[in-house]
Design a protein around this nucleic acid. Structure first.
Length: 272
DNA sequence: CGGGCCCCCTGGTGGC
DNA sequence: TGCCACCAGGGGGCCC
């Protein structure tokens, strides 16, 4: 499940492959992958346009064209974006492919069909589509900023961390990892945190995301970067997917519950 | 405001 | 070996 670190790794690995490449043709194999635009319209926007940049907001990836337009991706659960030689065999879950001017294709593969591709005519529209909260690795994300987000809220901590309108890019994996690192219970009412707990949570969010970035993302089943390579962060997860195993901090058995509709792994001993 | 549920999907799992 | 119910999960929508 691509979250902020995975989308960022895809952005970084994709960029050198698409930079200054022009679009020859566009093929949409599953029309419902598109959101807010038809394949005919998208073809019209893309053919002969040249990629100039790749940007990210939360889990949204924007590939920028020289026309000022943005090809916008949200990978949701199983979306994958790679650039590969056109002669290479196509995955059976290929949903869209864009032929570049160097005999390579930008391919969007998405087994579960939850992923979405959309289009923004300009930066303003991109900002409107990728309308999410503060970037947790930006300079703006200070303990004070986190405190403001949490203040007065009665919602559970995990629900707040998962809310993309508040903090951008955290999904189930990095929520559980961050809460464990911060030694905070996922069901704690958000507004109850004291200053020290806010600081712990702030540091934990940043360190779990930075570590995942360093490790090239977490590959549980599907994730791969723009070069088609898996990440290694799955070997460094502390609690996610480890229910029933001993807590790496205290040895108590890690437990699983449902919070905000998501499977949640935590240590009942360490996380208060 | 917040929680719960459904829906979109597919493939893996476990029960019979 | 086969069949089928069930589950996971990001996010939007809806209801209470």
């Amino acid at each position: 499940m691509p979250e902020l670190p995975e989308v960022e790794c895809i952005r970084l690995t994709l960029l050198p492959h698409i930079l200054d490449r022009s679009v020859i043709s566009v093929e949409v194999l599953w029309e419902r992958t598109l959101s807010g635009i038809s394949s005919a319209e998208l073809r019209h926007k893309l053919v002969n346009a040249r990629f100039t940049d790749a940007v990210r907001r939360g889990k949204f990836l924007g590939l920028v064209l020289h026309t000022g337009g943005y090809l916008v991706f949200h990978l949701r659960m199983t979306g994958k974006l790679t650039v590969q030689p056109v002669i290479e065999e196509r995955d059976k879950h290929l949903r869209m492919t864009i032929l570049l001017d160097n005999d390579r294709e930008l391919r969007f593969v998405d087994q579960r069909k939850f992923g979405k591709v959309s289009w923004a005519d300009d930066e303003e529209e991109w900002v409107r589509i990728a309308d999410v909260g503060i970037e947790p690795l930006s300079a703006d994300f200070t303990p004070e900023a986190l405190s403001t987000i949490c203040r007065g809220k009665r919602a559970r901590l995990k629900a707040v961390l998962l809310d993309q309108r508040l903090i951008a890019g955290l999904g189930n994996i990095y929520c559980d990892e961050s809460l464990f690192r911060a030694r905070l219970h996922p069901q704690r009412p958000c507004g109850d945190l004291n200053e020290n707990e806010i600081e712990r949570l702030h540091a934990a969010i940043q360190s779990s995301l930075r570590k995942a970035l360093q490790n090239g993302g977490t590959t549980l089943r599907d994730y791969m970067d723009g070069d088609g390579r898996p990440g290694t962060n799955q070997n460094h997860l502390l609690v996610y997917g480890r229910a029933g195993e001993p807590c790496p901090r205290c040895g108590h058995v890690l437990e699983r519950l449902k919070v905000a509709g998501r499977g949640t792994t935590f240590c009942p001993q360490c996380q208060k």
